[in-house]
Nucleic acid binder design. Structure first.
Lengths: 343, 343
DNA sequence: TCTAAAAATTTACACGCGTTAAGAAATCAT
DNA sequence: ATGATTTCTTAACGCGTGTAAATTTTTAGA
């Protein structure tokens, strides 16, 4: 293998017998050189260990092959799941993804966009905090870089949005819950930062009205990202105080539901559909752990893969045509009902 | 604010009235210029929006301020937890961390190290797969870049290792389980990729011998990273076949335990210490979800923060002195027993 | 075999910053 | 105020690659 250390493209040109500009063309697009020279280059590449200097390559580029991916919190399995899918899709498309987590801190979202700016990314896939995101920062960033939003929408900003149709998905599970038992009440955070939470509440209200039932909404105190804890503490409090007016609780997301399930278990309340069950609990998102809760969680599965793929493809579409789309596209995928044992 | 677009350091020198070499010094170390000029620069920085071009800055550097962080799988909350801590520690030390996940695929670990190589990182913090890591690749990478291993050890490689003392931690929980009831059997994966799993089995055997009990080991079939699934399927099978010779099961890690808990629940087996409980299940790691299982999981808490901090500080120590340490340091932190309801 | 088109080579400059050397200016100690 | 010292400015080169223009070589088509 490596006979001598190749320091730059000049030296590699010398040992491979190919001129430097041709090599430059090859590294930017192997298909742009004649088949025979491509093979000569690749033969030389196997013999000598050389790779173009990333920093020199990008120095004079207005745009690189970097794709920024920003999610609110990688500690949330939902985002690590969808973030991974997006990341892998970028890799297989020949881009260099950079996955950044804002660690639940909106200020870090700003910082992450700032860091990305200096990496001159070709585009960015952003799952924003939503309401607490700094919309001006996002818009300012978007002026320089194409951005496709996913998971959470910020109305009217960036090139496109890809997410789940909360109205469809919530209606689906409300309909199921009504059909299979008592109409559900709705359990959520008091001040949700995520716009999906607001959509889901709205969807719950509309769906209950459509089915001719009276809605009941219960809101948990608490801030931060420790949703299980909030679901456990506040959900548990509501349960022990018998505050819920129905025995079917639809949680705004699975993490709240997971917390509430643990509270129900502690209180010895049997959750589920069968005989002797006094409570039904359902969630939303099909969290990776939802199938291992006790009982396993009935929920709505977001189509992670479809969302990730569409977001990535939308961005690549923009990059390929090299022009921002004139109309802002919003794509909503339907959720699927996942019937398990908790409701 | 930004009156005109500053394109490079030359232009910023013009508008700020400071020479370019001085600016260059300032950006590399603000403390290296006189206080008065520093303030003039900073005043200008507030007025004009300029930041040095990252690629140009790093082009001629042998080392950058980048720190690579590589973990086997960010979808595992354990790694997203410890990865985040490491990441934040790097940021507050003034470095630029780049967190990479190998998505459960050892081949990607190799790729990640390759990508990092071209980013000329000052150092790398690596949580390797262990047995299935390509040791030669890691060693080859380590020749060029200082590497501190954490979580999983690869004997004799890299500058240092920081992890948990499995012998202490397993002994701690074995002792507790023996003291509070029946001595435990041990449940693990048949072919664990992680070296900690092997240490834990060994520790279990030694600990049981020390306490004068007969060890029993049960091994689950199955590959991949879906530990909960394996724990649920195989653990459930052992339970329903009454294969375990004791009613206390120590799982090699929390994710297996979480899966087994869900299987026990499905089978209507009450898990815990109290009256009417027929089974005790314990885990290891204090997985972020361990407190929300049903019942909540008795386990060993690894000192995430201590491990992350020590790993980072060890690396920075090497970077500061700018020379590889002559002796390879191994630091093991004790685990803490977390008594919850499952055992 | 000849010709037109395609592809590679040669030459040269650009990018933005690090860095050095020599000289000018500001600061400090006396 | 003076000289010594620190700090800054000016001028210039280098880093590794992109890229453009002019030229030469190779290939494809008849």
């Amino acid at each position: 293998m490596a006979q001598q250390k190749i320091r730059n493209m000049e030296e590699f040109a010398a040992v491979s017998g190919i001129s430097r500009p041709t090599l430059s063309k090859y590294f930017n697009d192997p298909g742009s050189v004649r088949r025979s020279t491509r093979q000569r280059i690749e033969t030389a590449l196997e013999q000598y260990d050389y790779r173009p200097n990333v920093f020199a390559v990008n120095q004079n580029r207005a745009r690189t092959k970097n794709i920024g991916i920003v999610v609110p919190n990688l500690a949330d399995p939902f985002f690590s799941e969808i973030g991974s899918k997006v990341e892998l899709a970028c890799i297989s498309a020949g881009y260099s993804p950079i996955l950044l987590s804002s660690h639940g801190n909106p200020a870090l979202e700003r910082d992450n966009l700032e860091s990305l700016r200096s990496l001159k990314p070709a585009g960015v896939l952003l799952a924003p905090f939503g309401r607490v995101s700094d919309q001006k920062d996002i818009e300012s960033f978007n002026r320089d870089v194409p951005v496709v939003l996913f998971d959470a929408n910020v109305e009217g900003t960036c090139e496109a949005f890809v997410g789940t149709n909360n109205f469809q998905s919530v209606d689906l599970i409300v309909e199921y819950l009504c059909r299979s038992g008592e109409p559900p009440c709705f359990f959520e955070m008091k001040s949700p930062t995520n716009p999906n939470a607001n959509k889901r509440r709205q969807a719950y209200l509309e769906s209950m009205a459509r089915h001719g039932h009276t809605p009941h909404i219960y809101r948990a105190e608490g801030d931060g990202w420790n949703f299980e804890d909030i679901g456990s503490a506040e959900g548990g409090r509501f349960l022990s105080e018998r505050a819920f007016r129905t025995d079917t609780v639809l949680c705004s997301n699975d993490r709240l539901a997971i917390g509430m399930l643990s509270a129900a278990y502690r209180q010895g309340k049997r959750v589920g559909l069968g005989e002797g069950c006094e409570l039904r609990i359902a969630g939303h998102d099909d969290h990776p752990f939802a199938r291992y809760t006790c009982p396993s969680l009935t929920t709505i599965a977001q189509d992670y893969a479809a969302i990730a793929n569409r977001a990535v493809n939308t961005l690549f579409g923009i990059l390929d045509t090299d022009q921002r789309p004139s109309i802002r596209e919003e794509t909503l995928f339907d959720g699927k009902l996942v019937m398990r044992d908790s409701a």
